[in-house]
Amino acid sequence: MLPAAHRLTRSQDFGLVVRRGRRAGRSRLVVHVLTSAARDAVSAGPRTSAASDGASAELRTSAASNGASAVPSTSAQPTLDPSKVGFVVSKAVGNSVVRHRVSRRLRHLVRDRLDLLPPGTSLVVRALAPAADADSASLGRDLDAALHKVLR
């Protein structure tokens, strides 16, 4: 199981990584990677929704109500966002049992490789139909090759 801090959970995050990230495909899977530098460039553009920044809106509201500055205090050490991972295993892979088996294998493989990802990286691993018949070793080789290609 991946720790909660390392999971992609929102549909918008999956969509952003798939649309804006770099992609590398292999016979059994496709990986999409969006680094924090690329995400910062995307978020610097015009905002499409005021609700997407609830934390800063809350900060502005509380700062305006008590007369304090809206600039949060900064610590001496910058905090780095953890890498986040999401999985897409469609019905093309197989029935529910097969899809969950593939998901568990991929989750286990990615968990061992989280340290290889730069901090703040978002990763989406999409399983293809041949992943249903693959063993963990071949999925691991495909994952390593795809990550190596997309992160260089």
Rank of each mutant, 00 (worst) to 15 (best):
L2N: 05
P3V: 06
P3C: 02
H6T: 10
L8W: 05
S11A: 15
Q12N: 09
D13M: 08
G15L: 13
G15E: 12
L16D: 05
R20M: 14
G21K: 00
G21M: 08
G21Q: 01
R22V: 13
R22E: 06
A24P: 00
A24G: 03
A24Y: 03
S27M: 06
S27P: 06
R28V: 12
L29P: 02
L29R: 02
L29S: 03
L29T: 00
H32I: 10
L34C: 01
L34M: 04
L34R: 00
A37P: 00
A37T: 13
A38C: 04
R39P: 01
A41D: 07
A41F: 05
V42I: 05
A44D: 11
G45H: 10
P46A: 08
T48E: 15
D53M: 06
G54D: 08
G54R: 12
S56D: 11
S56N: 10
A57E: 07
L59A: 15
L59F: 12
L59S: 11
A64Q: 07
S65W: 08
N66H: 11
N66P: 00
A68Q: 09
A68V: 13
S69P: 03
P72T: 00
T74Q: 12
S75F: 13
A76P: 07
L80H: 03
S83G: 02
K84Q: 12
V85S: 10
V88D: 04
V89K: 04
V89N: 06
S90Q: 10
K91M: 10
A92S: 12
A92V: 10
A92W: 01
N95A: 15
V97W: 05
V98F: 11
R99C: 04
R101D: 13
V102P: 02
R105M: 11
R105F: 03
L106M: 05
R107G: 13
R107L: 13
R113I: 14
L114E: 02
L116P: 01
G120M: 04
G120K: 03
L123Q: 01
V124T: 09
V124G: 05
R126N: 10
L128T: 06
P130M: 14
A132F: 09
A132W: 02
D133W: 10
D133S: 15
D133Q: 15
D135H: 05
S136K: 08
S136D: 13
L139V: 10
L139R: 04
